[in-house]
Computed example of a mutant assay.
Amino acid sequence: MDGNAASVAVALAGRPVMPAEEAAACYAGAVRTWGRAHIPGDVDVEHFNHLAQQLIDAADADALPLFAGWRAQPCPDNNPVGAAMQRVHVLREHRGACHLAAVRLCGLGARAAMVVNLGAEQASHYGWQEPPAVTAAQIPRLRRAERVTDEMQAPLYATLTERQRGEFAQLVEALTAS
């Protein structure tokens, strides 16, 4: 079974356990709970939420369905710390979707990119069966994919001022320090 067929099989196998919408709501709740437990109390989550929401609202979701789905998930106003972690997740999904598109553009599949980036053992840990060996030609392709990902992300972050980008970077570092 190739990687695409395996992904579809896993997705379909999960539906009898829980509808996708319910699973997404549970995952979002878990992300918020993790945020409340791990984000330091001195982080300005209100400012982070404002900047992150600007980015989320400005993001182009064309050809990025997983990001679009996560962006549509309700983010509670009464839980700013949990909402901050949920917004981190939504922005991570945007970058991840852009990266997958870049990986494919550069002639790699998701499994090969993971093996090149993290190694066969880690790819196995993530569920890839019999990860292939890395070839010399794959390494520059992954480097190019990283550059293309950054290029795809640049217009999004250009919606913030230089000062806001600096503040956002500091806030992300503070949020994820733990």
Rank of each mutant, 00 (worst) to 15 (best):
T161R: 07
T135K: 01
G107Y: 14
A120V: 08
P16F: 01
A112Q: 13
E130I: 03
A158D: 14
D77P: 02
A61W: 02
E93K: 06
R165L: 10
E121K: 13
Q73Y: 00
C98A: 15
A97C: 13
L55I: 10
L64Y: 10
A59P: 07
A133M: 10
A120S: 10
V103E: 02
R163L: 05
D44S: 04
G109A: 08
D62M: 04
G69T: 06
G69S: 07
A174S: 15
T33W: 11
R71S: 13
A133N: 02
I139T: 14
Q54T: 15
G41W: 09
E46P: 07
Q86H: 14
L118T: 11
Q53I: 00
V88R: 12
P140L: 02
M18V: 01
A83E: 03
H94D: 02
V8Q: 14
H89I: 00
W34I: 04
A61S: 14
G82F: 11
G109R: 06
R141M: 14
V31F: 06
P155N: 01
A11Q: 12
A113T: 13
A37H: 15
F168E: 00
A13F: 05
S124L: 09
Q73R: 09
R147D: 03
A113F: 13
M85Y: 15
T176D: 01
V45D: 13
A37E: 04
Q54P: 02
L171M: 11
S7E: 03
P80K: 10
A6T: 06
R147K: 08
F168S: 01
L105R: 13
A24M: 12
R163Q: 13
A52Q: 03
G109T: 15
L55P: 02
Y126P: 00
A72E: 11
G69E: 13
R32M: 15
V103Y: 05
V148K: 12
R143K: 13
V17H: 07
S124P: 00
A137R: 09
V116R: 15
V116M: 10
Q170Y: 04
T159P: 00
P131S: 04
D150M: 01
L64T: 04
R32Q: 15
P16H: 04
V10I: 14
A112C: 09
L51Q: 11
I56T: 08
T159Q: 12
Q86M: 14
H47S: 10
I139D: 06
C106F: 11
A102P: 10
A174R: 15
M1C: 08
R165G: 08
R32Y: 07
M85G: 05
A58S: 14
D77G: 10
G109Q: 05
G127C: 10
E22I: 06
T176F: 02
E21Q: 11
M1Q: 07
L160K: 05
L175I: 15
E93A: 13
D150S: 04
V81P: 00
A68Q: 10
R104W: 02
M114Q: 08
A11W: 07
A13G: 15
A174D: 03
A24D: 03
G96V: 09
L51T: 10
Y27S: 09
A58V: 07
Y157Q: 03
A97H: 08
A20K: 11
A123V: 10
H89Q: 15
H94G: 04
